[in-house]
């Protein structure tokens, strides 16, 4: 009953918010009457007639039949800005002045102005929290990661997204070569499966609200709740695991028994030092070899057996 009331209250509240947002939305800004090329894209392609520039004509951005797209209005200049000056020869100059907006991390157009062009259409959905996000405040241009003049933007392709991210996040690239890792190289898990690079409401740009919800999106069997819970597991998966790659098995930060012994210092075996005399050829300790502590306590993520309090069943 309590849950239903909570759920109903939440829905009513959300509906109210939804109405408030819609009602308060302003009238769409009108474009200023600046000098656009008379011939639209055809004028641009008088000069820019080679690939990859022309590839944009085969992408979702260039679809005049879709009223939302740049090519339904000012075509190339919807993004590059009114640039009729760019098409005029300037006496004494070998090259014309640049278009109003030139995209790229090292472009002459300030990054803020470039991104404003993109966000004028794309501020919804996953990009709602772009303003103030790590990449926004780090002056990352949309065009640093996105390639609009490509048949398929590499950052939107599972097999190539990692290389786009690794261009800056080299440490994570190095971690992807560890013995224990996620299938990122194979394109089966992408950076954006866990992270929202456009700004998130969770920690470390996570796509979901917290670490555990993010992990549960694939590892649903670990979601529980369980009868016998393991406090650090319910608290945060990264208490024990490191997601980008580990030299230890199962993406562990450090291996058992030492990981477990950072919290468990009980009489007898949990407080015993397992060392060189417990491994071959000097010994064969079942608390350090094979799965370590998990040789007896396999249900570290939680047990639902009524006798599983010690996470053995």
């Amino acid at each position: 009953m309590k849950t239903k009331t909570q759920l109903a209250s939440a829905l009513v509240f959300l509906f109210g918010l939804l109405m408030a947002f819609t009602w308060s939305d302003g009238v769409l800004a009108e474009e200023g009457d600046e000098a656009y090329a008379k011939g639209g894209a055809q004028d641009c392609m008088e000069c820019h007639d080679t690939q990859p520039t022309t590839l944009v004509l085969h992408t979702p951005h260039a679809m005049a039949g879709d009223a939302r797209t740049p090519f339904a209005s000012q075509e190339c200049e919807s993004c590059h800005g009114p640039s009729s000056d760019h098409m005029r020869k300037v006496p004494g100059e070998l090259i014309p002045p640049p278009p109003k907006v030139v995209f790229g991390q090292n472009s002459i157009t300030p990054i803020e102005d470039q991104n404003e062009v993109c966000m004028s259409c794309h501020e919804g959905g996953l990009r709602i929290n772009w303003t103030g996000s790590e990449h926004h405040s780090g002056d990352v241009a949309c065009a640093t990661c996105h390639t609009v003049h490509a048949l398929k933007d590499p950052v939107l392709v599972k097999q190539s997204q990692d290389e786009v991210c690794y261009a800056c996040h080299v440490e994570q690239k190095a971690q992807s070569f560890r013995r224990s890792r996620h299938p990122i190289k194979e394109g089966k898990v992408t950076c954006s499966d866990c992270h929202n690079p456009h700004g998130s409401f969770g920690p470390t740009l996570l796509k979901y609200s917290n670490v555990n919800e993010t992990c549960y999106s694939c590892h649903t069997e670990k979601r529980g709740p369980f009868l016998w819970e393991h406090a650090p597991v319910r608290d945060d998966c990264t208490n024990c695991h490191t997601p980008h790659g580990s030299s230890q098995p199962r993406l562990l930060k450090i291996r058992t028994p030492y990981l477990c012994q950072q919290c468990h210092i009980e009489a007898f075996h949990p407080s015993t030092l397992y060392s060189g005399d417990d491994i071959l050829p000097f010994g064969a300790g079942e608390r350090i070899l094979a799965k370590g502590c998990l040789n007896c306590h396999p249900k570290v993520h939680g047990s639902n057996h009524p006798g599983g309090v010690r996470l053995t069943r």
Binding site: L14, F21, S24, D25, L28, S120, G124, G125, T220
Partner: peptide, 16 residues
Amino acid sequence: QYTGKKAQFALDYNLS
């Protein structure tokens, strides 16, 4: 999802 010039929102429901 609603994407306006000034306001944007997304209301999602997920069942797993």
